[in-house]
């Protein structure tokens, strides 16, 4: 059996592969089957809309070039922003994948190495049950910091300048420049640029302790660890 063709093909090739697939893939799929996958539209939340509308205020021409004008009827505007925001997220994620951002930035906070102190709450499964995590953007390398709690940490204009030329706001940054997300100037992000910023602002926006509004403190003053806080 161990040296026969059928043994090698059926037991080694097929059997053991399926065993691993069942135990390592089907088991978690079954475990999470009651956690429905959210659509992109469902992912648009108030925190994110705040940032998205802020993009409109800051870069009205670029914004309207990319998404058109909001309807004149004020009652219809929230719906309109939601729909455009969902489009922006999809395009933003596409750029995030296309540029290999995920090979320099991870998207999960681990329960070790004091990561929760640096970035906030440890990541949970439900945070990933959505269309924008198909395939999941966990990442395996951090040249830059984890981004899963990035939303709201920085303002939109910081991001535009940073994507245009990272060294302008972060001295000596090895992050590549992305001038093709702009029409020649950091104040004129194009559709892809607006999408990418929306995507980055989305990361973590689903949490209640969204840093921009509540307890955000600059990095260096975050408590450094061991002392108990009761």
């Amino acid at each position: 059996m161990f040296e026969s063709k059928s043994g090698v093909l059926l037991i080694g090739g097929l059997g053991f592969f399926l065993l691993a697939f069942v135990s390592n893939a089907l088991v978690p799929i079954r475990m999470y089957q009651n956690m429905p996958e959210q659509t992109v539209q469902q992912l648009v939340n108030e925190n994110l809309l705040y940032q998205f509308e802020d993009l409109h205020k800051r870069y009205p021409e670029s914004f309207e070039a990319a998404y058109g004008k909001p309807p004149a009827d004020e009652a219809a505007q929230p719906e309109w922003y939601r729909a455009k925001c969902a489009d922006a997220l999809i395009l933003g994620r596409k750029s995030y994948v296309a540029e290999g951002c995920w090979h320099c930035h991870s998207q999960f906070v681990r329960p070790v190495s004091r990561e929760a102190e640096r970035w906030g709450e440890v990541s949970k499964s439900w945070e990933y049950q959505n269309e924008l995590q198909r395939p999941v953007m966990f990442g395996t390398r951090r040249v830059g910091p984890d981004l899963t709690r990035e939303g709201g940490r920085r303002s939109n204009d910081w991001h535009t300048v940073h994507f245009f030329r990272p060294t302008m706001v972060s001295e000596g940054s090895p992050m590549p420049e992305y001038p093709w997300f702009f029409d020649g100037d950091p104040n004129r992000p194009n559709a892809r640029g607006l999408g990418l910023i929306t995507y980055v602002q989305w990361l973590g926006s689903w949490l209640e302790s969204y840093p921009y509004y509540e307890q955000f403190q600059p990095m260096a003053t975050v408590n450094t660890g061991d002392d108990d806080e009761q």
Binding site: N24, A25, P28, I29, M31, Y32, M35, E37, S125, Y128, Q129, N130, E131, Q133, R134, P135, V136, F138
Partner: peptide
Amino acid sequence: VSGTSGGAI
């Protein structure tokens, strides 16, 4: 498969 179990795969 999305999310975490997609990550397992």
